[in-house]
Design a protein around this nucleic acid. Sequence first.
DNA 1: AGACTTTTTGCAAACGTTTGCAATGAATTT
DNA 2: AAATTCATTGCAAACGTTTGCAAAAAGTCT
Lengths: 374, 374
Amino acid sequence: MAVMRSEKKPNTRMQMIDIARMAGVSVSTVSRALAGSDLVNDATRKKIVDLAKSLRFSANVGAQNLRRGQSQTIAVVLPKSNADQQPVSDPFFISLLGELADALTSRGYDMLLTRVNEDHIDDVEGLVVSGRALGIVVIGQWLHHYVLTGLAARGVPIAVWGATLPGSNYFTVGGDNRLGGKLATEHLIACGRRRIMFLGDTRLPEVALRFEGYRDALIEAGYLVNPGLTAAVPFEGKAARRSLEDLFDHTADFDALFACSDLIAMTANGLLNARGLRVPDDVCVVGYDDLSLASQVHPTLTSVRQPLAAAAQALVDAVLAAREGKAPALVVLETTLIQRESSQLAAGGGIKPKVTAKSARSVKGAKGTKGAKR
Amino acid sequence: MAVMRSEKKPNTRMQMIDIARMAGVSVSTVSRALAGSDLVNDATRKKIVDLAKSLRFSANVGAQNLRRGQSQTIAVVLPKSNADQQPVSDPFFISLLGELADALTSRGYDMLLTRVNEDHIDDVEGLVVSGRALGIVVIGQWLHHYVLTGLAARGVPIAVWGATLPGSNYFTVGGDNRLGGKLATEHLIACGRRRIMFLGDTRLPEVALRFEGYRDALIEAGYLVNPGLTAAVPFEGKAARRSLEDLFDHTADFDALFACSDLIAMTANGLLNARGLRVPDDVCVVGYDDLSLASQVHPTLTSVRQPLAAAAQALVDAVLAAREGKAPALVVLETTLIQRESSQLAAGGGIKPKVTAKSARSVKGAKGTKGAKR
DNA sequence: AGACTTTTTGCAAACGTTTGCAATGAATTT
DNA sequence: AAATTCATTGCAAACGTTTGCAAAAAGTCT
């Protein structure tokens, strides 16, 4: 009896060569057929494609990348502060994450999500060097401008959500923070408030810009900028609450709050309520980010909106542009104020939520700008 | 003059062979040194490792995977309903996502995030077949039990966050939904409420189980289960709001709400407030998921907590077990009720938030159970 | 000093694709 | 009918690692 080699080895997965054998062609042809090349006869291609589909075959991506010399993956990194090891707390970033996932998949890229400790942000370079990702989107600039600059200088393709800092050597996408701050403050002034408190940590570039807007609005209206009316409330939930409690214990001399995130605004809202202060009658409150929740809570929250979907698109554009070695552009997205109950004019008879002002522009290199698109 | 070949080709990236040349050894040695193999002399290894580090070298992952025949990536899929194309709305899933990212990276896996349309969930098989990921974590079972069963049957390693359904052939990790429903309802009964409304879409397995707990609690207390006190409120924000508005327009005959998500609870809260009903005095409200926001809003929200970090760990365990071909286990995590202001007893003098009851167990294969760990 | 171990290294063959080039055969032209 | 095109296919060499095996170097024992 002849030695019989088992046809079906314990070979785990199906590969092109299997398809090739079944279709009676070579691997080259299979490869070309599946890639949709017109170098292969229509009938043959159809046969191969059908066969592959019916067998649920999908070519090994690692091998493809290796051969092609590039991957189709973009890494999205969420820096985590080592102070609070909490998972990303702010829903805003999360929503952005969701939009990014959609934007990337719809363009045929895979999304690699990475949480990295803020003092190891440099490590993300490895993602690119190792060919795991072709570029990196950083969600939140925080205090890492310097590190990001270093990465970009070393040729790592990065795009960052954050404040558009003038001399930046990396791609940035963000809202118009200064305008946002200004709109919010002007609105509160229009509501007749004069002692408007600014809640946010101005060490963060985005917050610093919002504060400038706040200050500009006050000055233009002829009011003083009272340093006592500024509190460096952090973004993270628990810490924010603690900070606010402490604040309200010591200060009560305000008639409006401008919070740099909706989360802060809502928390403040709750605390004010607990202390018997009514929103908006006693204190008007404006938040930032316009979370979907902002329109669901009571009272509904006036907030500054940044267009998330456009942001995600712009970030993807930016990281791809960065990869092609283009000069970094700073994309500033449309930024609008959405008025709701938490800043209702006391006298006014039923103001409907409305959009007050807009802004959409791009600084330095209009290339990737989708700001105005909506 | 001899032909001079340029030493430095436009060869983009550094690879092992470059390190090898610089260190005066072969690629094999570099490979082994970087892998920490003890087959290489300590001094040599140190030299190579240092060199690699200083050059920021990182081995090509595609090639590694190809050679090793496996990737170190786990795909996390977020099904998106094609009804509302919204990005993931519920913060609960997002938080879970964050925890998953941490759990995976801390164990050395990469996380591939994929949003997939709910009628193409089958496609995720391609992620595994193509070697892009070694397994899949599905966040949210929704109505896809059948599809998931099919995937598992075809040998795709999956682990699902959702309800632990008895005959399931795939790994599941979830809270004790029945107990959660029961705890919430018993608590509301203890608050003296009798017309407790259940808000949630019982077509979803998790919600169905919570409803069973609700029903059991009512029956054990000797109350009737009134079909008029059940409303299929969806999870997504806008739709939930619409549904609730419609509901409150037609029904007012309740003194408590048990909502299947905190988002629903908060929205309901806002609407009740707008209609002049006070929480908890007129209506007690209990939510589900214990979002961090639950303790920040006013009134703070009583809610059923599921341990997120443990959930993420269990999901990773599960998908790895699935990959090893182990028999599917159903992990049920500790589920507790966190009492807060929204269900404060009217008479009671300052009830502190407290945990009322616990549950942690595992059905069928205690292998991956980390339920009790915290 | 020779015959052993033991440690340290390098060679070369995979891993599963893609793609330049050459080969085949059919269709067209002369 | 030979010569020329053209459409379709296959061969074989990459892509950058890992790893079994054998070779070389360095100790250890008689």
